[in-house]
């Protein structure tokens, strides 16, 4: 369950940025999680809710933007969509694939309310 340690990092990043900006609270957190990222997005979302207790982000909604997986197929010499690691190229059914997109896990932005923490 490395999602919990990822969630601690998310809330750490969010709180750090929010405090620096003089926020009273964080109302929304937007994450970007690629389809090929090594994380279960629903679990991460839940873990973020748990970890955010007692922080400026305690009541924040947590939005996960998914990003499709893409890979370079050496056989086709083309970029193709890849739904999951271990699946073949949708065009040639081969496995000579190198992930080019969709393995990111990022904090994109947050919405804050300025002011003294409640």
């Amino acid at each position: 369950m490395h999602e919990l340690s990822l969630a601690e990092r998310v809330i750490g990043i969010v709180e750090g940025a929010a405090r620096k900006a003089g926020a009273r609270r964080v109302t929304r957190i937007a994450l970007e999680i690629g389809a090929l990222a090594h994380v279960e997005a629903e679990t991460l979302q839940y873990c973020c809710e748990v970890v955010s207790r007692g922080t400026l982000a305690e009541t924040a909604s947590i939005e996960v933007q998914r990003r499709p997986g893409r890979a370079w197929c050496e056989t086709c010499a083309a970029e193709v969509e890849l739904e999951q690691i271990g699946m073949p190229c949708p065009d040639c059914a081969g496995f000579r694939l190198k992930v080019t997109d969709g393995d990111q896990m990022r904090v994109v932005d947050v919405v804050i309310e300025p002011g003294e923490p409640a």
Binding site: V10, M105, V107, V111, I112
Partner: peptide, 19 residues
Amino acid sequence: APGTSEAQILRIEQDILSD
């Protein structure tokens, strides 16, 4: 953000595992 008047968006664009 709904229900607030002074909400601000902070761009963060940081990998979760950056640390």
